[in-house]
Design a protein around this nucleic acid. Structure first.
Lengths: 191, 191
DNA sequence: CTTAGATTAGACTATCCAGTCTAGTTTTGT
DNA sequence: ACAAAACTAGACTGGATAGTCTAATCTAAG
């Protein structure tokens, strides 16, 4: 059962880090995991290494799928944008973003790594997809990375900031917003 | 000279909070301000009230000017976007964003207030401007708040995230990027 | 000059925290 | 069954921190 305790610690730490940030104490974590102090240090070198492991997990959940077909751009991009928004705007992702950006000075390498695994990879994927669509003449030729970053930014709009800062968002028609964004994007890059 | 010490404390606290977040210690702050411990507590009830005051200052610096003329939309929006980017992406603003979002759970009211003063007001101004442009037929009618939030998001793109996470940004032609964003935006909302 | 308010240095309390260590108990593999 | 590994509770160290308090010094106004 060695793994059971390790998993309990990871789960408890994930919850507490997301709630309280890196300041969540080791005492609190072992308390929630219902595990002895020594057990914690059997499984992890120190608090930092536990944090690194938790954070790596969290940010892999951001990756949104993108079907490779460029024949129906509007539909592909809309379903991509919808899933991306879900992944990126849910409370857990927001908390992870908050904590990670807050620790960017303390753990610069970890934070860069995790960003590369999440948003970085997502940008690359989308850029590849858009490059293909450009080559096939569905949209105008332009820097695909620029276009990808632009679409990602448009898809989340100000909502990430609002959620990060605890601003109550006016509820809106999710689908309509996504359609407006994608249609607008396609009009920007119409060939 | 009573005010001198207060100002020294505010300045030192601003520097240290931006560097180290809310964890910057009172000792460090009075040390940098070269002021005695008791003096600190003469001027501020506690650390939290100093933090609130510092943070309110920082976020007022975000407001970007927007000339009221809708006759040359491209030019107005480009100069607006340029200044907005400068204000929002400079290292101090990034640090402020990091700290503020990190303290959103601890000081929810303060954080909401400061967001409303900064980005919130900026969104309103831009939305008013766009509404006017819509009414005058320069761009298509649409929800002006949605359009404003979209333009703000497009103007910063992924760069805020990259800077928050310490990702080295590929240097690009600032002006070209701004032009592409504004032109794209105008094509989206062409009447 | 005198006095009141501001300032100084620094001691002090009370709390919290990460990480180590001890000693006794349970689980696991063989 | 037995030994090794894992676990438990909890004490302990060393260090940091916010805020209070004291007593001495400085400054400015009357």
């Amino acid at each position: 059962m060695m793994m059971a305790n390790r998993e309990r610690l990871l789960l408890a730490a994930r919850e507490l880090f997301l709630e309280q940030g890196y300041d969540a104490s080791v005492d609190a974590i072992i308390g929630r995991a219902e595990v002895a102090r020594q057990t914690f240090y059997n499984h992890f070198k120190n608090k930092e290494s536990l944090f690194a492991e938790v954070v790596r997990d969290c940010f892999l959940d951001v990756l949104a799928p993108l079907n490779g077909h460029t024949d129906n751009l509007q539909q592909s991009l809309m379903s991509f944008a919808e899933i991306y928004r879900q992944r990126v705007l849910n409370p857990e992702s927001i908390a992870a973003y908050r904590i990670l950006s807050g620790q960017a000075l303390r753990f610069p390498d970890l934070v860069r790594e995790v960003y590369a695994l999440g948003t970085g990879q997502m940008t690359e994927r989308l850029a590849d997809f858009l490059r293909k669509a450009m080559d096939e003449g569905h949209i105008r030729h332009a820097d695909p990375v620029f276009a990808a970053e632009l679409l990602l930014a448009m898809a989340v709009g100000q909502e990430r900031s609002q959620r990060l800062f605890g601003i109550p968002c006016r509820e809106e028609d999710e689908q309509l917003k996504i359609k407006q964004v994608v249609d607008g994007f396609l009009r920007m890059f119409a060939s």
